[in-house]
Design a protein around this nucleic acid. Structure first.
Lengths: 122, 122
DNA sequence: AGACACCTACTAAAATCTTAGTAGTATTTA
DNA sequence: TAAATACTACTAAGATTTTAGTAGGTGTCT
């Protein structure tokens, strides 16, 4: 009997720009090129067509899919933020926190605003 | 009066291969090209000169420095693993765990073998 | 219909990353 | 000392990533 299998998850790591773009897409949940462009940090200026190209690339890689929207295409994440996060985190622990997951948690507590109470809750 | 300042830390993110190499260097603490090459996972075969080139690049970027060793140069990390780890983690939380540091910790606990006791200790 | 605005597809240049060869120098060995 | 060995510097090809322009389509306004 074949148990429910974890999805393939061959997902390579996103390139820096892909990640920037995906951050915006994840944030928006579903968005047009224009919306993605607007969602980028204001100091980050990418031409409309550049964002469009990136969306195309992401679509080609199966990271987002597109739907015809009212006027413009709507792009929707296929790769979920949580999944990518989990994957990145795993790889991070393997690669740079090799022998000290404890250190990771420590840094984590310092960096995030996570209180001890939040932690207890978990 | 100028308080002790946190170091510049402009460190861009390491490319995949740079990270592979640095993993080895961090592991060894201080190493020759040959040692780094040997430290790579055995299924990962990079020519000696490729490793040498990478060391050069890393040195150029100020990530390692070199000292004349007995025969070969010794390469020594400038960027410390902990610092890079902290930096990566911060950027990861910003980019993919935006609104849910809690989720991060959850994943962390699932992925690492960190026990609740270890956690309490922290 | 013509002009305008907006969108997608295609194309491609520039930058960066990855890989490794070759040549030259120094050191060890036969 | 000549040959073999080991290492570094230089060079560069190929791959991938990043950036954006141009052409052509579609709808909209006057």
């Amino acid at each position: 009997m074949v148990a429910r299998m974890k999805k393939k998850e061959v997902t390579r790591t996103l390139t820096p720009v892909e990640l920037e773009i995906m951050s915006a897409v994840w944030q928006l949940g579903k968005a047009t090129v224009k919306e993605v462009q607007a969602e980028l940090p204001k100091e980050r200026e990418l031409a409309y067509t550049t964002v469009a190209t990136m969306m195309k690339i992401l679509e080609g890689k199966g990271i987002v899919r597109s739907e015809r929207g009212d006027k413009a295409h709507l792009f929707i994440p296929i790769l979920r933020r949580e999944d990518y996060a989990a994957q990145s985190l795993k790889s991070l622990t393997q690669k740079v926190f090799a022998e000290s997951p404890t250190a990771l948690v420590k840094h984590l507590l310092e960096d995030t605003k996570l209180s001890v109470d939040d932690l207890k809750e978990i």
